[in-house]
Amino acid sequence: MTNTSGDAHPLADAMTTSVSVHDEATVLTVAGEVDLATAPALENAIEATLGSKPPVVIIDLTQVSFLASAGMAALVGAHKRAGETTRIMVVADGPATGRQLKVTGLDKVFAMHTTLDGALTALHQN
């Protein structure tokens, strides 16, 4: 069924997530716009990813074109839910993601990297 009325959640499909596993890290790749309409879907994807209690979750935001405060709140929520059992790393670069995370100080909360390869390399060095 297709919603053509344009009233329910017209931007609900503006963001996609996918999960993959690289060694001991579970990678949640996010693409599109993370805003007030799509942040709940991001929170659900993060919750599902954390559910299996992986040792490391890398949230890859390099394909995100817009990151609103609701998206940043979802990242903070992920950090709180992960607790001591799961290490959270964030991959973000450029004006759409990296700059916002630095301006808000969230780059001090998360281990941030500019590429997924960089995050995976750092993981193996620790």
Results as ranks from 00 to 15, higher is better:
Val57Trp: 06
Ala78Cys: 13
Pro55Asp: 11
Thr16Trp: 03
His79Thr: 03
Ala37Trp: 04
Val57Thr: 14
Ala12Phe: 04
Asp60Cys: 03
Gly71Tyr: 08
Ala41Phe: 12
Arg81Lys: 15
Ala14Glu: 12
Glu24Ser: 12
Pro10Leu: 07
Thr29Met: 06
Gly32Arg: 03
Phe66Lys: 05
Thr62Arg: 12
Ala41Met: 13
His22Ile: 04
Leu42Ala: 06
Val21Phe: 05
Leu42Tyr: 07
Ala82Gly: 10
Ile59Ala: 05
Ala73Pro: 00
Ala12Gln: 10
Val34Lys: 01
Pro10Gly: 10
Arg81Ile: 01
Ala14Asn: 11
Ile58His: 09
Ala70Tyr: 09
Ala12Val: 08
Ala37Gly: 11
Gln63Arg: 15
Gly32Lys: 02
Pro40Thr: 12
Gly51Lys: 05
Pro55Lys: 14
Ser18Pro: 04
Ala45Asn: 02
Thr49His: 04
Leu28Ser: 02
Gly51Leu: 06
Leu67Trp: 09
Gly77Trp: 03
Pro55Ser: 14
His22Ala: 15
Leu42Arg: 09
Val30Lys: 01
Glu84Ile: 03
Ala31Trp: 01
Phe66Trp: 13
Lys53Ile: 07
Glu33Ala: 12
His22Arg: 10
Ala70Ile: 03
Glu33Asn: 07
His9Pro: 00
Glu43Asp: 15
Ala74Trp: 03
Glu47Trp: 02
Ser52Leu: 02
Thr17Ile: 08
His22Phe: 07
Phe66His: 11
Asp7Gln: 15
Val56Leu: 10
Pro55His: 06
Ser65Thr: 15
Leu11Glu: 12
Leu36Asp: 01
Asp23Gln: 12
Ser52Trp: 01
